[in-house]
Write a protein that binds this DNA or RNA. Structure first.
Lengths: 138, 138
DNA sequence: ACGAAAACAATAATCGTTTTCAATTAAATG
DNA sequence: CATTTAATTGAAAACGATTATTGTTTTCGT
C-alpha cells in the first residue's frame, strides 16, 4: 500500500464521510450518488480518483477483481488460479492435489457455517496474484 | 451448470478445439485470434456466445469475477466478502474472527508453498457468492 | 499572500462485453 | 429426403464501467 502525496480537499473529506455512512462496500456509482447531494457539481471522475487515492493512502480498502476479463478453461475440475501481473496470464495455482483437497474441505466447512447463519452459498472464488515462476526467473 | 439446447456447429467445434490447444485459460480475445486463422469470417460475438454456451453445458469452465465493479470499504482490516446475486450487494462474510484467522493461516501456508515453487505471491482474493440472509428470508 | 503542484469539472475516449436484427443453418418432423 | 422451425450466425450498434484529456481552480509550503 504505497503512500502517495495527498491533499485533503473538501471533496475528499465528504467522499470519505459518505463512504463511512454508506457502510456496506458501495460501488463508485453509489458513492457518487450520495456525495452529489452535498456537492451537486462533483464529477464522476473526481469520485473515482479520490477513492483511488484514499485507498492508496490506507484510509479505505479497494475491493476489485484480480483480473476483470473473462477467461475459459478446458479443465472443468476444481482447482485454483494464479494471476501473474507481469505476463498477465492466468495459471493454475501450483499446488498438489492433496493441498487443493484440504483447502476445499476447509472452505467447504466455512460455507456450512455461513449456511447455518442464514446465507445460501452457491460457491466461491479463490485467486492468488503476484509474479509467476517463469517471469520471476528473469 | 444448467444444460441448454446446444447445436454442434462448425464454429463451436473449432472454438473448443482451439481452446484446448491454447491450454492456459485464455481470454475471449485470445481465442478469437487463433480461431480467426481457421475461420476468417467469424465474429467476436460468436466467440463470446459460443464460449458461454460451451461452459453452460459443461464442456469448459468459465473463470470470471464474482462482481466486476470496483467497490470500497471503510474497514481496512483483513476480512472476506459475500456477494449477494439477488440484491447485488457486497457484504462481509458472516464469520467469527477466529474462523477468519484460521482460514488466513491456512491460506498463508498455501502461499508459502507456492513461494517455495518459485512464485512470488503478492496476495489473494477469496469471495463467496449466493443469496444473503435478508434476501433469503423473503 | 504568492506561486508551483495537485486537484478539479466536464467531456471524450477506451475497454470488454452484450444486444439487435436480418440472413443462414442444424436438426427434428413428416 | 424435403420441409419446417428454432437456434445460430456475422455485422454493427449499444452498453456500462473506467480512464484520459483539457483547461480552470484550489491547496499549501514558503
Amino acid at each position: 500500500m504505497e503512500k502517495v502525496p495527498m491533499r485533503i480537499t473538501y471533496q475528499r473529506k465528504i467522499i470519505l464521510e459518505e463512504l463511512k455512512n454508506l457502510g456496506n462496500h458501495p460501488t463508485v456509482d453509489e458513492v457518487y450518488m450520495v456525495v452529489k447531494k452535498r456537492l451537486p457539481k462533483i464529477s464522476m471522475s473526481t469520485v473515482y480518483r479520490s477513492l483511488e487515492v484514499l485507498s492508496k493512502n490506507g484510509f479505505i480498502k479497494k475491493i476489485e477483481p484480480v483480473d476483470t476479463q473473462k477467461r475459459f478453461d478446458d479443465n472443468t475440475s476444481t482447482h485454483y488460479h494464479f494471476y501473474c501481473k507481469n505476463c498477465e496470464k492466468m495459471k493454475d495455482a501450483p499446488l498438489k492435489p492433496e493441498m487443493v483437497k484440504k483447502l476445499e474441505k476447509e472452505i467447504g466447512a466455512i460455507e456450512k457455517i455461513m449456511e447455518g447463519n442464514g446465507y445460501k452459498v452457491d460457491g466461491y472464488t479463490l485467486e492468488f496474484f503476484g509474479t509467476c515462476k517463469s517471469c520471476e526467473q528473469k
